[in-house]
């Protein structure tokens, strides 16, 4: 790395990724994982959809993680997503008050998933979005994407990522509004309507 100063630490080679495999289901999902919104919070939104493979078939063994800000655009630094119960060795669930910004959900047999979180607020030049990390059996390295949630924000015109995408690709990142503060977002791992996936540098 010729751009580094002689005293900078030597970069460490990263540990390679591996597939999550088929048997994470008794280890990673946790009660309350999809329910990131505090109880009865007025900014609660439901986001749901399906994960589909290159043949359009549902992916019944994907795990999705969502990370996003509260309605003011603030990213919490708050633990308590998977509160453990030291009495039973089980889970207590979230405390219903704190917002951790983190949701985890496994797909069902139809490849469907749903989370309830707070409507994300805009940050900087961005339209409001939730960051998504996708894991699945058969997927050797997780995939990052974003679900843009339509709202009051001027949104999509100025967002640096969306603005750089051709319209048909951009559409794969936009959730569709449904009644009752619910948004639909399907993830296509492969194929003509393949979701835009991201690489951060």
């Amino acid at each position: 790395m010729s751009t580094r100063t002689p005293h900078a630490p030597v970069p460490h080679a990263p540990t390679p990724s591996h597939t999550i495999g088929p048997f994470y289901g008794y280890a990673l999902p946790f009660p309350g994982g999809p329910e990131a919104a505090p109880y009865a919070h007025p900014d609660t939104v439901t986001v749901h959809g399906r994960v589909l493979d290159g043949a359009g078939a549902p992916v019944p063994d994907a795990l999705l993680e969502f990370w996003g800000p509260d309605a003011d655009g603030q990213l919490p630094q708050q633990g308590g997503s998977l509160r453990r119960d030291p009495v039973t060795g089980g889970f207590l669930g979230r405390n219903g008050v704190d917002f951790t910004g983190f949701a985890r959900v496994a797909t069902d047999a139809d490849g469907h998933w749903a989370i309830r979180t707070l409507r994300p607020g805009a940050r900087g030049p961005h339209a409001p979005y939730l960051s998504v990390c996708v894991f699945a059996r058969g997927l050797t390295h997780h995939l990052f994407t974003r679900v843009y949630v339509p709202g009051d924000s001027p949104a999509t015109g100025t967002d640096p990522l969306l603005a750089a995408l051709p319209p048909e690709r951009r559409a794969t990142l936009l959730a569709t509004a449904e009644p009752h503060a619910t948004y639909r977002f399907d993830l296509r791992l492969q194929g003509p309507d393949e979701t835009v996936f991201l690489e951060f540098s």
Partner: peptide, 29 residues
């Protein structure tokens, strides 16, 4: 199992040095 579960389009690059407000630069706690 990777056959139908890998994207065929290249990933879209996000240069976080130009985008300090990207939510992905912080982590769940």
């Amino acid at each position: 199992s990777s056959a139908l579960r890998h994207p065929t389009q290249p990933p879209v690059a996000v240069d976080t040095r130009l985008d300090p407000e990207a939510a992905e630069l912080s982590s769940p706690a």
